[in-house]
């Protein structure tokens, strides 16, 4: 589908990804539920993936695509660890609200 590359300027992908990234960031800032925040971080990672794939396609080398694999790997590992942490927290405080997690301060 080479037409995509001709039809869509690369910058659009850049802007799209950046926008997506920023939406992820907004999500992290916006929500208090730790799970949703985790999901928003996934959103950020996805925007990066999209960007990498786009660059990869436009530049004609697939390093970016390979890199996406690693990001996926890491994302999966992070999610596993993160959710495990979340579970153990939930056991203790029965909440996923990050505002409750403020015993450590000052």
């Amino acid at each position: 589908m080479n037409q995509t590359l001709e039809a869509v300027p690369q910058n659009w992908y850049l802007i799209l990804s950046t926008l997506l990234f920023c939406i992820g960031v907004i999500g992290v800032l916006f929500r208090r539920n730790a799970i949703i925040i985790l999901m928003c971080i996934e959103l950020m990672l996805n925007s990066v993936n999209l960007l990498l794939v786009a660059f990869s396609a436009y530049a004609g080398n697939n390093d970016g695509q390979v890199f996406v694999f690693f990001i996926m790997v890491v994302a999966a590992a992070e999610v596993a660890v993160g959710l495990a942490l979340l579970m153990s927290i939930y056991r203790n405080i029965a909440s996923t609200d990050i505002n409750v997690l403020n015993k450590l301060k000052w």
Binding site: M1, T4, L5, V8, M39, E42, V53, A75, A76, V79
Partner: peptide, 25 residues
């Protein structure tokens, strides 16, 4: 991804994210 000629990645993406990670969530 498909639009950008990354067909394999598209598949993997769906499998890993939608199939694994999101299920976890």
């Amino acid at each position: 991804y498909v639009l950008l000629n990354a067909q394999f990645l598209a598949i993997v993406h769906i499998i890993v994210y939608a199939g694994a990670i999101m299920v976890l969530f």
